[in-house]
Design a protein around this nucleic acid. Structure first.
Length: 505
RNA sequence: GGCGCUUUCGUCUAGUGGCUAGGACACAUGCCUCUCACGCAUGGAACACGGGUUCGAUUCCCGUAGGCGCUACCA
């Protein structure tokens, strides 16, 4: 059993954008597969034709491409166990449903959704199970000829799993240990619908995981209550000896308040809950994505990996390879984790710091261009090296350093009041004359010359530099002064100095 | 309601039958300094509660409470 080749799957429904919790589930599957030299399969669970959303599948695939989670097999990746889209596997499910029917493990039921609804309204806590099934319209309660008649006259039906009551069903979960439930609380789940000739999740899931040789099912905690049902299904098919091992992950919770993380939390608190921006084809509504919000994929991965799992040491910055090496299902936490978006922002900051200046400059270049500024990569890289530590997102770099490209039009009132004294104009004129006289405008030389001048004149360092800063930047921010003047050059520096003298007097 | 899962600083978490209960984010203060940041340093901050078991429980057991999930011809 332990010798089994690791094969895991991520199997979303194409019903909309991929939720960030789903991303984490996929990530854990990926880490687990890679660590064990196994395979990750991408399956599409589109058995509910009503909920199908065009574009969702492509969106999901694009999300993983951006995040660097790679699949070995599945929809668009190929493989031996295809097709990997459940809507294309009708014939397969049909065959296995028939097997269950033939073995008496399942039965046909004709109760319409309306009838069931009426029943639920009538009987409190009605459940379709061993205690009620004989009073319903199904192949257990009706005669064989009645059943045939109904089918032949075109009545739609479903196939239900016949759950035997009074049995203790045990699930050995890799994260939670032994979980036991009494089969009496399970209802006779619908496995198959004649209307669209498609199975429901439960049947398709078991058949596919079996046929695709899945060794471990790593999924969200919302599936834990139906895990015993799945065990029973494996048993009914006679597949218990190759049944995958289960691991149910805790859920992602709202940053504050009660409940699990939702799209609304993101809107309210200002962070995305989807990997990529999503344009809803029906409503036209746009939901923000991590990619478009300027998060680095490495930061998203690192943050998500640590939300519900911890290697047990104090190291927090981990690359995908580090994660693959360290990941351990048994160290996954059992309780839900609140989505701490402030920490994710910190991760983004750290990854900006970690990446080299050229990489950040390349990401920043389009932002600069969008402001109508043309500059060289060389110049931008220098600026980035001075400024990148100050921001959490690359786009914030523009706000932090636009003065390198655009001369101040106005001078910040408060800064003027504080930094521009009566004699500032005179001193700045002296400074301008000094700088103009320099043949060598290098940062080092300016620094040397200006310091000597300040000392010789007995001026204060602060009064000169702050006024100088106001002239070049327009407000009181930015790196060391000569890192500004040196980069914008002599001509521009003098022009800004003279304009400030003229305007501020 | 029923069933299941779960509970360490505000948040993510480490950890142990005896520890000053560790780290990170956030927060506060200080340092650095030509400004604003970054950075660095320091600080406050937790074992849900009640019973057991034990010489001793945050750790093991039981219960209570809170939280989360499921309870569809959705996944």
């Amino acid at each position: 059993m332990n010798e089994r080749k690791v094969r895991v799957r991520f199997a979303p429904s194409p019903t909309g954008p991929l939720h960030i919790g789903g991303v984490r589930t996929a990530l854990y599957n990926y880490l687990f597969a890679k660590q064990h030299g196994g395979e990750l399969i991408f399956r599409i669970e589109d058995t509910d034709s009503n909920r199908f959303v065009p574009g969702a599948e492509e969106y999901i695939l694009e999300s993983f491409r951006w995040l660097g989670i790679k699949f070995d097999e599945g929809v668009t990746f190929g493989g031996e166990c295809g097709p990997y889209r459940q809507s294309e596997r009708r014939a397969i499910y049909k065959k296995y449903v028939q097997q269950l029917l033939d073995n008496g493990k399942a039965y046909i039921a004709f109760d319409t959704p309306e009838e069931l609804e009426a029943k639920r309204a009538e009987v409190e806590n009605f459940q379709y199970d061993a205690s009620t099934r004989l009073s319903m319209r199904n192949s257990l309660a009706l005669s064989a000829s009645e059943v045939n008649e109904l089918i032949e006259s075109g009545h739609q039906y479903v196939v239900r799993f016949k759950v035997e009551p009074g049995e203790k069903v045990v699930v050995n979960d890799l994260i939670r240990g032994i979980v036991t439930i009494d089969s009496s609380i399970l209802d006779d789940k619908v496995l198959y619908k004649s209307a669209d000739e498609l199975p429901t999740y439960h049947l398709a899931n078991i058949v596919d995981d079996h046929l695709m040789n899945i060794s471990h099912v790593i999924r969200g905690e919302e599936w834990l209550p139906s895990a015993p049902l799945h065990v029973l299904l494996y048993r009914a098919f006679g597949w218990e000896s190759t049944m995958p091992q289960f691991a149910h992950l805790s859920l992602l919770l709202k940053p504050e308040g009660n409940g699990k993380l939702s799209k609304r939390d993101g809107d309210r608190l200002g962070f995305p809950v989807f990997p990529l921006e999503w344009h809803d084809p029906k409503s036209g509504a746009v939901s923000s994505g991590f990619r478009e919000s300027d998060y680095l994929p490495e930061a998203v991965i690192n943050f998500l990996a640590l939300l519900g799992w911890n290697p047990g040491d104090d190291v927090e910055m981990m690359s995908m390879n580090d994660l693959i090496n360290k990941f351990d299902l048994s160290k996954c936490s059992k309780a839900g984790a609140r989505f701490d978006y402030k920490k994710m922002i910190w991760f983004n900051h750290e990854y900006i710091l970690q990446k080299n200046d050229e990489e950040i400059a390349a990401i920043f270049m389009p932002v600069v261009q969008s402001h109508g500024v043309e500059t060289s990569m060389e110049m931008l890289t220098k600026i980035v090296s001075l400024m990148k530590g100050r921001v959490n997102f690359v786009h914030e770099l523009w706000e932090a350093c636009s003065f390198y490209f655009v001369a101040p039009v106005e001078y910040d009132e408060k800064t003027v009041k504080k930094r521009w004294k009566e004699d500032s104009a005179v001193k700045m004129a002296e400074l301008a004359a000094l700088l103009e006289s320099l043949d060598d405008f290098s940062i080092e030389n300016q620094d040397k010359a200006v310091h000597e001048w300040i000392e010789a004149k007995g001026y204060g360092m602060g009064e000169i530099m702050n006024a100088f800063r106001l002239a070049l930047v327009g407000e009181g921010k930015g790196p060391q002064m000569f890192d500004i003047s040196g980069l914008i050059g002599k001509e521009e520096t003098l022009a800004r100095l003279r304009r400030a003298i003229a305007v501020l007097g």
